[in-house]
Design a protein around this nucleic acid. Structure first.
Lengths: 155, 155
DNA sequence: CATCAGTGATTGAAACCTCAACATCGCGTA
DNA sequence: TACGCGATGTTGAGGTTTCAATCACTGATG
């Protein structure tokens, strides 16, 4: 019998430091954003839903399309959208062109909430990340994250 | 009456692109890591607990110290450690030098689990981030994250 | 037209996290 | 010694996410 053994390619000391800074730094950023959004009764996941709807025609989007854009599972999105609907932030309607589909659409109140929260949100993004990082490093960060997203999916 | 009005300093187009890449990229990295760790019945939060205990004398750490290192609330850590204890990964003992304190210590089984999972974990860190990013950009990423962590806390 | 595999969305239970309240203990001070 | 504030951990309730199962509909195939 033979097991597939892995010879670990450990990170070197510097990579290790960078990796741990990544863990701490991302944690710090998201903690800060959530703290700011909480003042509007939102979290980052809900805020991204608002943004994506607001950028779509009629402030409306199919659930599945929305799930892809905010990187949430369909199930999670159903639950979250259900709560947001209960708060009057958006409404759901059957999709006219596809009997399986459901459209989520911002209400007036939901759009007003986004308009109100957005300036504070962008300020927290600056405070936590954009304004504290050297501009050249910030651009490199962008390239790095694009490379991550564009990397082929694991098997 | 007068309200404090904010003149939003919106992100410019390029900053916007980088910010969204950051959201997608970090999500991609953490999704990949969790998927790999799930094969060992762990998530990233639990894995970081294992790592921090394993790097400490006697594989043991005060709960509060551990909470700081893994950036989890005390409450969350109590719950998580409780579940890990139930699985036999670690044990809790009263701290001899401080009646309030509790030490968490890895069991043999817990350490063996870490030893087993670590090579796959590091491989996923490489696959998701380290190996797909240009080395110079990776270093810049490190500087950026250090700047984020070192930034003064918001009021 | 009948079937059937695939897609879109939801459901409910279990697992997990958050939040506020609480219990306990250490330490400085009078 | 007694007081009281601050720190350490835990608890349980309530809210959120995950996971697998399910329902409904579409489109293709025979």
């Amino acid at each position: 019998m033979q097991t597939t053994t892995i010879t670990p390619r450990w990170l070197d000391a510097e990579q290790q430091v960078i990796w741990r800074a990544f863990l701490s730094g991302t944690n710090r950023v998201f903690t800060e954003l959530d703290a700011e959004l909480r003042r509007f009764g939102l979290d980052l996941g809900e805020y991204e839903i608002l943004v994506n709807l607001s950028e779509s025609p009629d402030h409306e989007l199919r659930m599945s399309e929305l799930a892809d854009r905010v990187r949430q599972s369909r199930s999670r999105l159903t639950h979250t959208v259900g709560r947001m609907e209960a708060k009057g932030i958006l409404v759901r309607n059957a999709c006219p062109s596809d009997g399986r589909g459901v459209n989520a659409r911002l209400t007036e109140h939901g759009y007003a909430l986004l308009v109100e929260a957005a300036p504070y949100h962008v300020e927290s993004v600056r405070r936590a990340l954009v304004d504290v990082v050297d501009p050249a490093d910030f651009e490199a960060l962008g390239r790095a994250m694009v490379a991550v997203v564009d990397a082929p999916a694991a098997e």
